[in-house]
């Protein structure tokens, strides 16, 4: 009987986290698409040299970061994947979301500070160890985007 209750609770948690987690993910992707569309004209590039003919008036370091985690249901799925091996589909959208969010925050910050472009954009990923479970579980993944923001001299 007790085992049955345990199973029931686990199934309930899985269902609830699946529903809430998917809703949060869907909303996040919608917001990402909207904000990316708005910033499409702003140049962010990964090369270090400035394109020919750009006259720089001012520059600074631009940064954006986010910490995200997977919902319980998808972590459970990923755990199963760990036994079977193969492509872990549940983690792919999570990392994609985090990376795009970090890039957007970097760009939005640069736009707010009046910069015209960002060059030498770099991305970094790091895993945060959880304080429970002897640091084995993960508390989330941090995504950092940074680059050199430049203000250009306006041609008269």
């Amino acid at each position: 009987m007790e085992a049955l209750t345990q199973l029931g609770i686990t199934l309930m948690v899985l269902t609830v986290t699946y529903l809430v987690g998917s809703a949060i993910e869907r909303r996040h992707f919608d917001s990402l698409r909207k904000r990316e569309a708005r910033l499409r004209a702003f140049p962010t590039v990964t090369f270090e040299r400035l394109p020919e003919g750009w006259q720089v008036a001012d520059s600074g370091l631009a940064m954006g970061s986010t910490v995200v985690s997977l919902d319980y249901f998808k972590r459970f799925l990923a755990g199963l994947r760990g036994i079977l091996g193969g492509r872990v589909r549940s983690y792919e959208p999570l990392l994609d979301r985090a990376r795009r969010e970090a890039l957007l925050r970097m760009t939005e910050g640069a736009v707010a500070d009046g910069y015209d472009a960002i060059v030498n954009v770099r991305l970094e990923t790091s895993r945060l160890a959880s304080s429970r479970g002897r640091g084995k579980g993960t508390a989330g993944v941090e995504m950092l985007a940074f680059g050199t923001a430049v203000k250009l001299v306006r041609q008269p």
Partner: peptide, 26 residues
């Protein structure tokens, strides 16, 4: 913060408290 983030960890998404903590530290 850790307890709150623990709850958030169930449903997934951004853990805003950690984002802030790390960017302040950086």
């Amino acid at each position: 913060r850790d307890i709150m983030a623990g709850f958030k960890n169930l449903v997934g998404g951004e853990l805003a408290a950690y984002t802030e903590l790390l960017s302040d530290s950086r």
